[in-house]
Design a protein around this nucleic acid. Structure first.
Lengths: 163, 163
DNA sequence: TTGATTTGGTATGAGATTCATATAATATCG
DNA sequence: CGATATTATATGAATCTCATACCAAATCAA
């Protein structure tokens, strides 16, 4: 930090460029992963949004259809249709909530896990290869970064839905 | 790396756990960013897939509808419909390819850039805040990681489409 | 050159999807 | 207890996706 003003300005410029670049790469990664999602979904006879919901149920479930609708930014009636498809395909099950007889709890069925895993296996092994290039500390930095991105995305979505 | 076998096994276990965790966080980030995308799309009266295509045109364009269909994993006729909507909304323009009179080149119109930027501004400032917690070297490591993820996603999609 | 085949983009129409609204059942509040 | 709110879903209109067909232009074959 003992730089003359010129060097300091240069460092600031470089940093700004790097941050901009990183955000661009994140957008790019999001699109490519969504494209992969779409291709996987096509093979599994699932819509993109079905897979998104399946991911949400998998990571945040079991949860109710109304909570899922909120988390996914979808209309409740749309979620009913999505859950119908996922249930018909034996991806999920709907149970009654024991504490509220109006409510429903959606949970993942492990039945077709292997099939889904197989569809993602190409990406999975590529990810393993990528990770081999990083040491333990770097992997943790990246994982933590991605965790923060999730929170940011969730918060930004909420703000936009509210406003 | 001068560890007795027990320590080495422990380190391997830890590393495997970290890699698994990282992949889970990446999936989670993809979903949250897609949800944000959906919410943004709702405000801009665009379908999720329209925004995906807009991103692809923005980063890889100008390109032809058939190339876009290939990159996005969509049917050519579907892309025609998407481009119709994007054109009607003044997001893109279709030009004839001077070197092939059958072909069309799709390019971004900057007209509505500010509007889109405003919708993403909440996420953008959150990303800036996140990046402040990392030094230059870390930012570059993360950006490079995301670049590799894009390539992996693109390759995995291609394999799946071909097979 | 001519004629056949391939390629690029889009129109058409059948089937599927989304969502505003309405509805039924249950919960909660006063 | 009665009124209101909440949860999930049925219904139907508008819209979207994609297989197919089609036309124009490029490329290939002879």
């Amino acid at each position: 930090m003992n730089l003359i003003p010129n060097q300091e300005a240069e460092a600031t410029r470089l940093r700004r460029r790097t941050v901009t670049q990183l955000k661009a790469e994140l957008r790019g990664a999001r699109v490519q992963l969504s494209v992969l999602n779409h291709v996987v979904g096509t093979h599994a006879e699932l819509k993109d949004v079905d897979l998104d919901c399946l991911d949400l149920i998998s990571s945040q479930g079991p949860l109710s259809p109304s909570m899922l609708a909120k988390r996914a930014g979808l209309h409740p009636a749309t979620v009913t249709g999505i859950l119908d498809r996922l249930e018909r395909g034996r991806w999920i099950a709907r149970d009654r909530d024991p504490s509220d007889r109006r409510a429903v709890l959606v949970r993942i069925l492990p039945e077709r896990n292997a099939e889904m895993f197989r569809l993602y296996s190409g990406m999975n092994s590529r990810m393993d290869a990528i990770c081999e290039g990083y040491d333990q500390a770097q992997l943790e930095v990246i994982a933590d970064f991605l965790r923060r991105v999730q929170a940011a995305g969730s918060d930004a979505s909420e703000d936009l839905t509210a406003g």
